[in-house]
Amino acid sequence: MEGFITDWLNLALRWFHVIAAIAWIGESFYFVALDNSLKPPTDANQRKRGVFGELWHVHGGGFYNMQKYTVAPPEMPDDLHWSKWPSYTTWMSGFSLFFVLYLLSPTTYLIDTNVLDMGPVVAVAAALGFLAAGWIVYDSLCRVLGTNDRVLGVCVGIYVVIAAYLACHIFSGRAAYLIMGAMLATIMSANVFFVIIPGQRKMVAAMLKGETPNPIYGKRGKQRSVHNTYFTLPVVFAMLSNHYAMTYTNKYNWVVLLFIMLAGALIRQFFVMRHRGQVLWYLPLGGVALMFGALAWTLPKPVAPEAQAANAPKVTVADIAPVLQQRCVQCHSAHPTLMGSAPAGVLLDTPDEISQNAQRIYQQAVTLKAMPLGNVTHITDDERKKIAAWFEGGAAK
């Protein structure tokens, strides 16, 4: 029953998280596109009122005129939209999901003793510390180097490389990818909470007092917003990565992660520049090249089946069924004991089900060694070799 409740909680939180993320990313992408598409106003009166740029839209049968002021409008409107709640709900729902799936089961999801042998409490503390340190280091870089966008961008990029390396050498590969995404997402939401919104509040407060707002708050907010837009696609990949073990189980998984994250940033840059009227095809092509590079890096090396001894019996389903019964059906069963339901609907209760999933079993247990998760059922190398011999020998029934 506990696993069943956890699965439903997982479903509800994941659904809510995806909905909130769509709202936040959509709003963020729109404002970045708007900011990069603005044209100087042609009306002299608009320029006198402090309008920096404007953009006309036609959508849904109506015309819209979006305007941006150099600092602020002459008078504060009665109804002012604050772009914050999509960010906050995305982070809160994401952290709740991370708590339910990873922090409550650190032995299964966070720890890989082949990477770093640590206890559950240490693993949970390390994961939370990683998120907190991510923001602290990033924010410190922005405060120290914020006057030079180019230098700051390079330093933030170097920091992401270091963080990816550390994460993949502390946590299991699956957890490392997710924690890297969560770290960047924490930075993004913290930018909104600690910098962008407070700066906007100070600008509004100054206007209500009849004072001219300090433009530094707008500049800082825009700088953090630009960083957020480049983090977005890498974060989306990290959130999806747990479905693709060939990436995070690689020996150099941190390199694979960086390849794909950089590909996402380049593709995002293409659209940013396109909104400015520059079509730079080398950006998405570079992103695609990096994805192919990641594919080539993770491509499994073909392994020739070992020749069986002349009198060695052929390995059949009956031979590996006890291994799967002892190591795998705790999750992959019609009535699992470690989870509420079988992941991906893969059942291994009967010989027919085992044969139907032969390729998956070989891929996950032998080639990638991604299963069992965290090796909680302690499958041995000899048992993996037996599965390999069965599959490479034709997956005999």
Rank of each mutant, 00 (worst) to 15 (best):
P313W: 05
V317T: 15
T337G: 12
A358W: 01
T350E: 04
L348Y: 01
P336H: 12
I320G: 03
V317K: 13
H332R: 08
H335N: 08
T350I: 08
K314M: 14
K369F: 02
V366F: 03
Q326C: 06
Q325N: 14
V323F: 00
V346C: 09
A312S: 09
Y362A: 12
T337Q: 10
V346R: 15
V329K: 08
T316C: 09
I320H: 03
Q356D: 07
T316N: 00
K369T: 10
P336R: 15
G345T: 11
C331G: 03
C328Q: 01
T367Q: 04
V329F: 06
K369I: 07
P351M: 04
K314D: 08
A307V: 14
S341D: 14
A321R: 10
A334N: 13
V315Y: 05
H335W: 04
P351H: 06
A344N: 15
P336L: 13
I361F: 05
T350S: 10
A365Q: 04
P351E: 04
A344E: 11
Q359W: 03
T316I: 10
I354Y: 04
A365R: 06
T350H: 05
C328S: 03
V346K: 07
T350A: 04
L368R: 12
A310G: 07
E353P: 03
A318Q: 15
P313E: 07
P336D: 05
N311Y: 10
A321F: 00
S333G: 06
V323N: 00
R360Q: 12
P343M: 13
V366M: 05
G340H: 09
L368V: 06
N311D: 15
I354H: 02
Q325C: 10
I320M: 04
K369L: 01
P351N: 03
A365V: 08
A321K: 14
V323R: 02
A304V: 12
T316G: 11
L348W: 01
P351R: 00
S355R: 12
E353Q: 15
A342Y: 05
A312T: 06
S333V: 09
N311E: 13
E353L: 14
P351W: 00
M339F: 06
V329R: 11
A358H: 07
G340D: 10
Q330A: 10
S333A: 13
A334C: 08
C331Q: 03
A304L: 13
S333P: 01
A365F: 08
T367S: 11
I361W: 02
A307L: 11
A307N: 12
